[in-house]
Design a protein around this nucleic acid. Sequence first.
DNA 1: CTTATATTTCGATGTTTCTAGAAATACTGT
DNA 2: ACAGTATTTCTAGAAACATCGAAATATAAG
Lengths: 107, 107
Amino acid sequence: MKLDFEQAAVLMAQLGNETRLKIVRLLVEAGVIGLPVGEIQRRLDIPASTLSHHISHLKHVGLVSQTRQSTTLSCCVEFSKIDAIVRFLTDECCVRGRGKTKKRKAA
Amino acid sequence: MKLDFEQAAVLMAQLGNETRLKIVRLLVEAGVIGLPVGEIQRRLDIPASTLSHHISHLKHVGLVSQTRQSTTLSCCVEFSKIDAIVRFLTDECCVRGRGKTKKRKAA
DNA sequence: CTTATATTTCGATGTTTCTAGAAATACTGT
DNA sequence: ACAGTATTTCTAGAAACATCGAAATATAAG
């Protein structure tokens, strides 16, 4: 997955909100299993409507997906998107001006 | 440089604006030499006040620094900050659920 | 069909951010 | 000191965003 400029900005804007970044972190921790919305709500201690609002943002940009298991909706982070952001920063746009003063690990 | 959670959010929020991301990209391209504000303005074709506003944001979070050369102010991107964001995404917070498994917390 | 749980949508409100013109400031050369 | 160029600060309106209670929707169980 390769991001264009606008996509990269949109994704980073989403991660640029502390609440959403917390959600993503929880979901990364949860891995492919994911985490139910209610569990996220309990851990972050925010109103359900606020949480839902943020999750819908994250879904909209493809950072999070949801699957229903009976009454419970589990959220899962889209690791490939985060990878894509990292790649955008390292390759596409940003980190190439320096190949100096950094301890470089053998590639 | 290691970012805490809030710093990471703040930095990504800054990169999450297309105009600012364009500024940063130009500056990355310019490398350690940097680029004068006026040159950025010409290339992006936006009002000086708007540009200045964004640059001041970028300075405020440490993504950009400025040095004056007579009448011209040159901007320089802080590569270490971008590195830090990448590291935050790969190590601290986000990318570990797949591939190389790092030490995992009790789930 | 009713109740219960899980989650979203709606609607209202307050806050932040973006944009850009006008005025102010900073520096250089004369 | 003055003119000229470069850039920032001031100001303000519009647009976007965050928050959260209340109401609505979805699913399951009795």
